[in-house]
Computed example of a mutant assay.
Amino acid sequence: MSTTIEGESGSGVDGRVAPRHRVLIAGTIRYAGGIGTASCVVRNLSETGAKLTLSESLNLPTHFDLAIAQKNAVHRCELRWRRGEEAGVAFLDASASAPAAAPAPPIATPEIDALRARIRTLEAENARLKARIAELAGG
C-alpha cells in the first residue's frame, strides 16, 4: 500500500501513480459474490483508483467490485480509506482502462433472493440506528 489516494490533486506530489480526474458518474458496488449491491457516485477517477460517495450506513467490505456502466468497466477494488459518506479505493485489476466483459446475469434462487432482502433490511436498520444515535447525541 505504498500509494496514497486521498486528496484531489493529480500532480504526483501526494504519491499517486496516476492523476485523478473529477467526474460525477453513477456506480454500482457488488460484494458477497454479487449477492449484495449498493449504488454509489464516482467523484474522481484515475487508472489506479477512485473516490466514491455512498451511503454512510453501508458496511463496505475491504474488497469488492465496482461497476461503472458509463465507462463500460468493472474494477476489482480494495478499500483504502473511509470517512463518512466518502471512500477511496484502489483498483486491483491488471488493466483498469480495459473495457470489462459483460457482467454475468444475476443469480436468482429463493435463497439468494432472501439473502438480498435481508441485506436490504439490515442496511435500512443500520441507517435508522445511526440516525437515532446522532439524534440522541444532539447532532
Rank of each mutant, 00 (worst) to 15 (best):
A102Q: 10
L136K: 06
A67P: 00
A90K: 11
D93V: 00
A98M: 06
E85H: 07
N59P: 03
R83H: 06
S97Q: 02
A137H: 06
A102H: 05
L92G: 05
E85T: 07
E56W: 04
E125G: 05
L79S: 02
G84E: 02
P105Y: 15
E56L: 04
R132F: 07
N72K: 10
T109I: 05
S55N: 11
I119T: 06
F64G: 00
E86K: 08
R83N: 10
L129A: 11
D93C: 02
L58M: 09
L52R: 10
E111M: 08
K51H: 15
G88I: 03
R76D: 12
R76C: 10
S97N: 02
K130P: 02
A50G: 11
R76Y: 11
Q70D: 08
A69G: 03
A134P: 01
L58K: 07
A117R: 13
E135Q: 08
R128F: 14
S55E: 14
P103D: 14
T109R: 08
R82H: 08
I68M: 10
E123H: 11
I112L: 13
A137T: 01
E111A: 14
R80I: 04
A73I: 08
A90I: 04
S55V: 02
K71V: 00
L92W: 05
S95M: 07
E85N: 12
A90R: 13
R132H: 09
T62V: 03
N59L: 10
L92M: 08
R83F: 08
T121S: 15
I107T: 13
A134I: 01
A90Y: 09
R132S: 10
A101R: 13
E85G: 05
R118K: 11
L66F: 02
I68W: 02
L58Y: 14
K71R: 12
N72S: 12
G88S: 07
T53S: 15
E85A: 13
F91D: 01
L122T: 13
L129M: 13
A114P: 02
R80G: 00
R80H: 01
S97G: 01
L136M: 08
I133R: 11
A131G: 12
P106N: 14
A90T: 04
L79Q: 03
A67Y: 02
P110E: 12
R120Q: 14
L60G: 04
A87V: 04
E123T: 09
S55D: 14
A73N: 07
N72L: 06
E78R: 15
Q70K: 08
T109K: 09
S55C: 10
E125S: 10
D65K: 07
I112R: 14
W81Q: 04
P61K: 04
L129R: 14
R132P: 00
K130A: 09
A137W: 02
H75R: 14
A117W: 13
L52V: 07
F91I: 01
A108K: 15
L115I: 03
G84H: 01
F64P: 00
N126V: 02
A69K: 10
R118V: 04
A50F: 12
